[in-house]
Amino acid sequence: MALASSQNILPDFRLSPRIDQIGVEERAARFTTRSIKADAKMNGLLLVLNMIDLTTLEGKDTPGKVKQLCYKGMHPHDAIPGLPSVAAICVYPSMVKIAKKALEGSGVKVAAVATAFPSGQAPKDVKIRDTKFAVSEGADEIDMVISRGKFHEGEYNFVFDEIAAIKEACGTARLKVILETGELGTYDKVRRASDIAMHAGADFIKTSTGKIQPAATMPVTLVMLEAIRDFYYKTGKMIGMKPAGGISKSKLALHYLVMVKETLGNDWLNNEWFRFGASSLANDVLMQIAKEKTGLYQSANYFSVD
């Protein structure tokens, strides 16, 4: 409804499509009834592993910790040959340089959370500096947070302009825009925030910081995938999706893959366009891959904890 006729004209974000809560939750639940077995399971698990943004975002992060995580990202479990690496290592700006060096030549990207993550409660110029610093340190991707306070106030132009300014500060780095859906409260608002972010220049939209509950859920992710679908049809531009926080089990990750497959199709089924923001998911995926290969579950002690 009320879609702009040309991509140069911005829509009125107050008129973003409405979401029926019951309907979207039913649809999301339906994806979980798909039975993923045999080859489908193995290929799905490898795909999931390759889509992970392996994350450490703690006050106590040190270069030592980040280096260890980078090694894990490049070599998730060398006991099983032929495994893919993860997609990226996600860190605070101060750790970008360390990660960049550790990952050199591996193809694994460095993602930095910027813009006064996780609250975003800082002046715009501080957020821009934060972003530019991360980019100058070598970040390939920037994960920004939107100003949720301004969004709730209905200051959509403010939110839009801020995203556009950060996008400009990113240069060639890809921009992921975190909506922090756990603070938005309704699916209607998730949809509206998604539309604002995409029109303002987001390369990816992302559910959560991981610091707020609830983080990613399937219905929230579905609302965002459908926003991406509508935006793609309207503009021809693909936008990536990153659910983050709360996805720690392989089975759930496979349900997300089903959802991507049946909502956006093949073009999004790769780590260029879909990511999982997670820290503990990787080991569960590895454990399942080992189980598929050997027929037995191995003790958690066989998988490195980083």
């Binding site: 799905g44 795909l47 497959k261 089924l269």
Partner: peptide, 8 residues
């Protein structure tokens, strides 16, 4: 929707 990743 004819994806590389298919259900077994």
């Amino acid at each position: 929707f004819d994806t590389d990743w298919t259900y077994a």
